[in-house]
């Protein structure tokens, strides 16, 4: 289902029972930045900033287009940012400013990733 159902209110992500294409698919390992997203999500939860429920709710509210056009960890980092902003850990302005600064460091993830340890 590609949208929330306007007649019933059924949410787009609540997809059990729908028709769809073949289930098996290729597998891939994750890039370092993706593993870091995962780590940051786990750490923030462990520190009590938000719960997995908040992460899921943010993912659901991003809507079906995000599911179709963004990768799994792209959606996770967006949902992470959403939860951190909601809980007052960072502000929109702070995040925006830092992202601009990061962008100015260079063209690749390797250039911009900052001090890893």
């Amino acid at each position: 289902m590609r949208t929330d159902d306007p007649e019933t209110g059924r949410r787009w992500h609540d997809m059990g029972g729908d028709a769809a294409g073949p289930a098996p698919g290729p597998d891939h390992d994750f890039a370092l930045w993706e593993k870091r997203v995962d780590a940051l999500v786990q750490i923030a939860q462990a520190k009590g900033v938000f719960t997995v429920d908040g992460l899921r709710r943010a993912l659901e509210d991003m809507g079906p287009d995000a599911f179709e056009t963004m990768t799994y960890y792209e959606r996770w980092v967006a949902a992470l940012a959403q939860n951190l902003i909601e809980h007052g850990v960072v502000t929109v302005a702070e995040l925006d400013a830092r992202m601009a600064q990061v962008a100015a460091r260079g063209e690749t993830y390797g250039d911009a990733q900052g001090a890893a340890e």
Partner: peptide, 14 residues
Amino acid sequence: GGGGPGHVRTPWYL
């Protein structure tokens, strides 16, 4: 259920 908004873990098909 009413099909209302929010985060619900009871799937529609059930």
